[in-house]
Write a protein that binds this DNA or RNA. Structure first.
Lengths: 221, 221
DNA sequence: GTCTATAAACAGATAGAC
DNA sequence: GTCTATCTGTTTATAGAC
């Protein structure tokens, strides 16, 4: 692991970043290797050299996403793999709210996230071998962790269908604001999706989360 | 408007149905005109003849969607354009719940809806001229109607940002179950998305809707 | 209106010079 | 490792026979 990036590594990373952006924007089939090479400031042959071809680059992009997002998810929700121990329901609920808030900030707020979210969504809609990496490296661990937090906050079993589906519905809300951004901006009369808009979205999603949690707590009595 | 479909009209419709399915499944760029013609049981040249080319077919698919979905939406939520008059909050709430339930049944439940939903989502993610038809013919009127129902049920103003964003979040929940179907099935251990699964999804979404409505009613006091 | 044949452009992959 | 030139197959669009 050299500290200074070699020329080879720079080209490799530039190709991944270009692939991520273009695959996310226009899809795998909609993007030509010529475009990717041009965006990365290199030549077409380097894609075959570094990744064995266009599909190899797609896979490398998926690996990049799981690595990069793992760090974000860790910050948002604590250890993904272990320690489901939480001292109190209140603490778990606070962590859940904070986690969802950070997910909104990332998915709906950060412009760089658009390409990542779109890349993942395209994989979900039209699975390729790259989806396996994303599922086991990102999708499942994040979902499991959110279910743990939900269970700790409500007392419901973390592996019940009810909890799992509710957590999916939470994620779905957030993701939709990024997918349908074009239409939502038009309907809301927004000219951009800046920090004001992200705040409004976060407020809506958190209000929903609290409403659903409260309803569950009441019905559990 | 002839009562019996002519040969020309049959070919036209077959091309639209094939285009809808294939564009939805694999995207516009991922689908070749050869595939579409083969799926429609006709030849490549007929696409140019009937629709001026591949893009023209895409536009015709969007028009087909707005027309076909208009009927579904009408059944689910009453007149889209006019009569926002509703006699009581309870009636409005019942109509809202029923409307969302039918949207779930359609979007998440009916297999034929998968291609339509995916077609629309692809347009949202990567807008083409076809998005304009879908936005003004389907997306906006449905959203406006849901906001009217929400306003009538809660007393909140139908054109407030809060109501509009909350309605978006409701739609997002439902849509996500269709987008992420592959990953959700894996996480839930489902081998298919049949009526049992659709019922569970509907139950989750309706429970969320009721929780959010209840929270709003309480805070309004 | 339908269909075959073909044109013109473009795709991804690769050989070989440097 | 990088890059140019090129190979091979596929794409959309279209001309013209029927």
């Amino acid at each position: 692991m050299p500290e200074r990036a070699t020329s080879s590594e720079k080209t490799r990373e530039a190709l991944i970043r270009a692939g991520l952006r273009l695959f996310g924007e226009k899809g795998f089939d909609g993007t030509s290797t010529r475009e990717i090479a041009a965006a990365a400031g290199t030549n077409i042959a380097s894609i075959a050299y570094h990744f064995r071809g266009k599909e190899g680059l797609q896979l490398a992009c998926a690996e990049f996403i799981t690595t990069a997002m793992g760090g974000v998810a860790y910050h948002a929700m604590g250890n993904l793999a272990g320690n489901p121990e939480l001292s109190s329901r209140e603490e778990a609920r606070a962590l859940l709210v904070k986690g969802v808030e950070m997910i909104v900030q990332f998915i709906a707020g950060r412009p760089e996230a658009a390409e990542i979210v779109q890349f993942v969504l395209r994989e979900l809609m039209h699975p390729s071998p790259a989806l396996d990496h994303i599922y086991s490296g990102l999708f499942e661990p994040v979902h499991v962790r959110l279910c743990q937090l939900w269970a700790a906050a409500t007392g419901e079993p973390a592996d019940s269908d009810e909890v799992k589906l509710t957590v999916f519905s939470l994620i779905g809300q957030v993701v939709y604001f990024r997918i349908a951004e074009a239409a939502i901006m038009r309907r809301m009369g927004w000219s951009e999706t800046g920090s004001d808009q992200t705040r409004d979205i976060a407020r809506t999603v958190i209000a929903n989360l609290n409403a659903i949690l409260d309803a569950r707590m009441r019905s559990a009595r």
